[in-house]
Amino acid sequence: MTTFGEINEPSSRTAWEDWDDVISSENYVDLHLEKTVEVPQQIDTFIILEGRYLYDCIRAHHQLEVVNASPEVNLRLYRTRKMNNYVCMIRDYNLILSSEIVELLKKYIDVSTDVIAILTKPLVEYQVSELVTKDYVIRSLATSKQSSIGLDINFPHLEQPNIITGVSAGVLSWREITDKPAVALVCYIEHPEELQIQELFNLLEKLKVIPHVEKTHRNNLLNSNLYI
């Protein structure tokens, strides 16, 4: 008698999957915004700056007013002083919490006319057939509905099989589902400690996140007088 093609379940549990013993309550984080503030009825552009590089670029030069924060995921929410834009800065967070973070921001995202997400990734993660000779590469990924903000965002489309993950990806997906415009700019960087990427600074200046580009200077270890 053959058992080929049959499903034989073991009489006892002598084997189990790795996730069988995982307790769902482990690593649970109750995400929330620190303050209860009124969400505006309309926001022109909601800007997401994801990653330590962007945080370091503008932390000493931003023209922003703090609105709220979620320290558990290193998230800060700002309002620009000169335009009806909101800026979300986030860095060093657990990717598993991306969906929960998007839920936190959804009430702001839904009332925004446009959404721009900018994130950085290591250049070694950029997969392309051609040889990359630059220190950085900027690519874009947009929703089906085109943005109406009128800014000059004409970066090449992100090629397959490259993907984006995290909060920026979640926000872009939500805007696609709700048939609203959004664009994500992915900047692949070789040496983030040394680079000052002019295209990103120009865009942040247009969005009134930073002052004039010529006044912008990144404070980091390699630009300091500290010798090791």
Rank of each mutant, 00 (worst) to 15 (best):
Y86N: 02
L222I: 14
D21V: 10
E6N: 11
Y126K: 03
V171A: 02
T45P: 01
L207C: 07
E159V: 13
L221P: 00
I189F: 01
A142G: 01
V167A: 04
V209R: 01
N220F: 02
Q198P: 00
G170A: 05
Y93A: 04
I153R: 07
H217E: 10
N85S: 01
K180R: 15
A182K: 07
L31C: 06
L75Q: 07
K106T: 11
N94S: 13
Q42F: 11
A117C: 15
L185S: 09
A69L: 09
Y188M: 06
N220R: 05
D110F: 08
N202Q: 10
S173R: 11
L104C: 07
A182V: 06
E214G: 01
V66G: 02
S99R: 12
V102C: 13
E190K: 15
Y227G: 00
C88G: 05
E199K: 12
I58D: 04
M1Q: 04
Y136H: 15
L33Y: 02
R52W: 01
N8P: 00
Q63A: 06
T2P: 15
R52N: 13
K121S: 12
L119N: 04
T80D: 01
H191V: 09
K82S: 13
C88S: 14
E193Y: 06
L97E: 11
S144N: 12
V87M: 03
C88Q: 06
D135H: 08
R218E: 08
G5C: 04
E176P: 00
L195G: 00
Q160M: 10
S144C: 06
L226K: 09
T216S: 08
A117I: 06
Q127G: 00
A169Q: 13
P40Q: 09
L77M: 12
G166P: 04
I138W: 01
K134T: 15
Q196C: 04
Y86W: 12
